[in-house]
Design a protein around this nucleic acid. Sequence first.
RNA 1: GGGCGCGUAGCUCAAUGGUAGAGCAGUGGCCUUUUAAGCCAUUGGUUGAAGGUUCGAGUCCUUCCGCGCUCACCA
Length: 510
Amino acid sequence: MEDNHHEYTQLEKNRLEKAARLREQGIEPYPHRVQRSHTSQAAIQAFEALENDEGAEAVQATLVGRIRSMRPMGKLVFAHIEDGAGRIQLFIRANDVGKEQLDLFKSEFDLGDFVEASGEVFRTRTGEISLRVNEFRILAKAITPLPAAKDEVTEEGEVVRHASLTDPETRYRQRYADLAINEEVREIFRVRAGVSRALRDFMDDRGFLEVETPILQPIYGGAAAKPFVTHHNQLKQELYLRISFELYLKRLLVGGYERVYEIGRDFRNEGVDRTHNPEFTQIEFYWAYADYNDVMRLTEEMVRYVAEQVTGGTTIEYQGNQIDLSKDWQRIELKEGLIELASIDIDEYPDAESLAAAMRAKDMKVDPKAPRGKLIDTLIGEFVEPTLIQPSFLYNYPRDISPLAKNLPGDSATVERFEGFMAGFELCNAFTELNDPIEQELRFQEMGRAYTDEDEERHPMDEDYLRAMRYGMPPNGGFGMGVDRLTMLFTDKANIREVILFPHLRSRED
RNA sequence: GGGCGCGUAGCUCAAUGGUAGAGCAGUGGCCUUUUAAGCCAUUGGUUGAAGGUUCGAGUCCUUCCGCGCUCACCA
């Protein structure tokens, strides 16, 4: 690896020289203290409020922000600065600041610099509310030019972006630059924050207690996924980054809480694609004395509530599809859905061999080692999932892929589990939780047999979880949902990386 | 991991195997109500990396790196 010394480009050298020249003039390019009286939008609103009031005094303001555009015109400079609230135009005139100051601004200030400017708010001849600057100061000199974007505001008020940063690799690796110039990217993460807040409000309002459970776990579980492995030096112990919260949250029901939830990060050491990131955010809740029917109804309410909070409505457009969240979700029994869409009645194929044969008859590639449940899941992915554009619950899943779910009464091969879908992808997963410790131990053993010892997805036996359950666990319904995917729906993004601030990319020496 | 595609200036993109270019940004000028400001001039490149074919490679071949789409995988 080469040394980490940054090789400055000519553009950067220019700006370093500008910073040096400012210092020579006794101007600190990175001062400690800042004055600010208004945000850009507050100044504009204050002006608008008093504009038609003849007797009102002019609005004096000290504003701060980053220079996003500059139009020098001889003895006058127009510039836009951008702060957290928006943009406002600066009007800097030799008459107001003096020729020396104007020249200083024109020669040493660049796009991307943070500045402070004071003056009176007014409206220019063309009607734009602006700050007539009589004093300004640099707050932070930018050395690297932002990957320049020029915005054109049409007469309809539409913003047309010219030559912005669009290369996805650079956008993700240098998210700070992406955010700095692409306002709509900043908006994505405001929506994301709104989704988290709405989820918390929803759960809190219904008496669910927000808790935090271990991320570093001696035994991973609650899902079938490969974990990340790490090591505690002093304890000389292997630890896993959690793949789900489930087993810890249900221990809390044993402890006496009736309703708990957690929003946090899961880690799965698996493939990366447009709906999978190695770390992702989940919400899980466990609800004592509820079953999966109750959980379905709560899910409908929850997603509708989040939509209302985040978008103001109950209809969303996702990748060209209108999705209606105002109504109850479609309920499709898994078996019926497969008969209808795959023309396969799974009851006629009670074992993996016969089902695999039926699938091969449909020209499907079939993993010869796959257990029956996994084959059924393949059928769902192939025939059912892509058709579920409107919100839908697929319910009653095969027992052998659901070791933590309770049997359907009178049906030992099926469990009370559902998955929620919309826009053609899986959004959530829930079941009536298994709370019989003897049955649970049996299920763990079955899972152990379903996978070979080397298989990293093999379900490890969690003895402590069984011990907890033996103390008595109330009947309960549990639920998990990907917050990233939910955010994708509300931001109309097809790639999970668009809704993760710093998505994982392969390391690169650059 | 497989298939397909992409990688050229700070950004967005051109360039039949034949002198690497444009717009924006930058730099130097002109310009006191502009807003993709305008006008004149001008700097800027190890064409992702390394090999190879060729008189000659951004272009063709091989390998590698990275990204995208897709398939597989992911209860």
